[in-house]
Design a protein around this nucleic acid. Structure first.
Lengths: 182, 182
DNA sequence: CAATAATAAATGATCGTTCATTTAATTTCA
DNA sequence: TGAAATTAAATGAACGATCATTTATTATTG
């Protein structure tokens, strides 16, 4: 049931983890408490499924329309633009993710498979490193210095309500590129 | 009571927000439930005070031994080193902060005063901009591209247990500088 | 002894979860 | 086809446990 997922994401964003109960989710989703347990084993299972669903959506949006035959720089900018687009269009998905990923839950779940959802990023950075475009550093380091700051900036604008305009985004992309370029 | 703060921080890191109750905090701190209410109005007040305390500690550690008469680059590297030191020494403080700051609580609290704790950072970046060392971008942007990635890297090492050695840190500082330098 | 600090115990409310039952949809077969 | 039988989906009500918070009582201490 889609309504249960949506209610979960909305509530976690509105009132936080600690205050989000099954009763409140059920009420917001317009179903009975028991209905939730038809589709999900328990509360934590619901959270895990919601997390996986949201992460899948993010991966899908991040790489849509991406052509592996394009240049590294084209792919780089495409990924960043798609990511910003995702954050702005699915802001509740994104903020939900941020909250989950900073909680002890992922450690508890030990999900090794979610990294594979973002393989095109590793692919792009590896190619860039081979071509001598990027610094010879761990790809995680390249990601942290180029993609994560953009996400953080977009998040900031999401939270204070100010728009993240093209000029600011382009300035950010320049800084991302400067950080990782050889 | 210090034990109450420590228990709160530990529990939030171990089992997360949703599962951290007053009873569990009291038990871990070896006090009665009621004792917590002598020092704190309610659960949320306890969280807020813990948050402020931790943020204060972070600010204190971040700028200790910092001399405003030093060069911008020296201050820059000092701040980053201090920050990494803080993250590694007070890892539970840091992870607690990350969890709070990605929850809806700070928005609810509307704390405008906490930014002032980190004024030396703004000071340093402003000076650097005036001297033409840094790009003429919003200071928040400079922070997001230079300090935040280091924190993220340190956090990664904290979570997977691998050490964040000097060589990696120096490589990170180079990338930070490249990202923001004019 | 007075005052402060800490407590155990109890409060009603809400928690996650289960269960017996109803309603809706689908299949069976005369 | 159409009534009867079966399955599936959803529910309200209830469970014991735990929740945040309060009260009345007991230690502690100067």
């Amino acid at each position: 049931m889609e309504a249960i997922f949506d209610a979960t994401i909305q509530l976690v964003n509105e009132i936080g983890f600690a205050e989000t109960s099954i009763s409140k989710i059920a009420k917001k989703a317009n179903v009975s408490n028991a209905t939730i347990y038809i589709y999900h084993e328990n509360k934590e299972d619901l959270l895990l499924k919601t997390y996986l669903k949201v992460k899948g959506k993010m991966s899908e949006k991040m790489f849509q329309g991406m052509d592996e035959s394009r240049t590294v720089k084209e792919r780089f900018e495409s990924i960043i633009h798609n990511f910003v687009e995702f954050i702005q269009t699915y802001k509740e998905y994104f903020l939900f993710l941020e909250q989950i990923m900073n909680s002890p839950l992922p450690q508890k779940w030990c999900l090794d498979d979610t990294a594979s959802l973002f393989q095109p990023i590793f692919e792009m950075f590896d190619t860039g490193k081979r071509q001598g475009l990027f610094k010879q550093e761990d790809v995680r380091m390249l990601i942290v210095y180029s993609i994560l700051p953009v996400a953080e900036l977009a998040k900031g604008h999401l939270k204070d309500g100010t728009p993240f305009n093209d000029q600011q985004l382009n300035a950010a992309i320049v800084m991302s590129w400067d950080a990782i370029k050889a």
